[in-house]
């Protein structure tokens, strides 16, 4: 269960983690500046388990994996958006940041709402709005990556063969 941080369309990776901090690869340092250019309150107040909810094309722009790393390290448990930019989508899966693509959840979600995410059973509940949503599982090949523990673990097995 976590509180919603609500953002709009086209949240780009430059605002998720500005390039001026990309001279570091340290997850903690990156998390300290996460979302800084659109929301100065985020890094200060985000709690372990909180959830980002956004509209279309979340994570557009640069391929920097530092963006999902910063989000994950900040304590965010899941990012829910109407759609994700494709590089961000792959990066999030690869580093184990849970993401959910859903058209209705964002429409009802407001900043501060309490959300319960049960990825195993494919159910999201907005406790504040008293609404329940079904989420679709990932395609089997992506499930395989997640079950292996991410792309690195999956590749370890592949290169052995």
């Amino acid at each position: 269960m976590g509180k919603i941080w609500r953002y709009g369309d086209n949240v780009d990776t430059d605002v998720i983690i500005p390039a001026r901090y990309l001279n570091s690869t340290d997850a903690k340092e990156l998390a300290a500046h996460c979302m800084e250019d659109i929301d100065t309150e985020f890094a200060k107040n985000v709690q372990q388990g909180d959830i980002i909810v956004a509209d279309e094309n979340f994570g557009c722009g640069s391929s920097r994996e530092h963006a999902p790393i910063a989000i994950k390290e900040s304590g965010i448990s899941t990012v829910i958006a109407k759609s994700f930019a494709r590089i961000f989508f792959r990066n999030a899966i690869n580093i184990g940041l849970p993401i959910v693509e859903h058209k209705e959840i964002p429409d009802d979600a407001q900043a501060g709402d309490e959300l319960e995410v049960d990825l195993g059973n494919g159910i999201v509940k907005n406790l504040t709005k008293n609404k329940t949503y079904q989420i679709n599982p990932f395609p089997p090949s992506i499930q395989k990556l997640i079950e292996a523990g991410g792309l690195v673990e999956y590749t370890k097995e592949r290169v052995k063969r």
Binding site: S63, R64, I87, R90, N91, V152, R158, V159
Partner: peptide
């Protein structure tokens, strides 16, 4: 096409 660092690392290996 662009990818992230982990995708790239795995392709560098395989």
């Amino acid at each position: 096409t662009g990818v992230g660092s982990t995708d790239l690392a795995c392709a560098m290996a395989s």
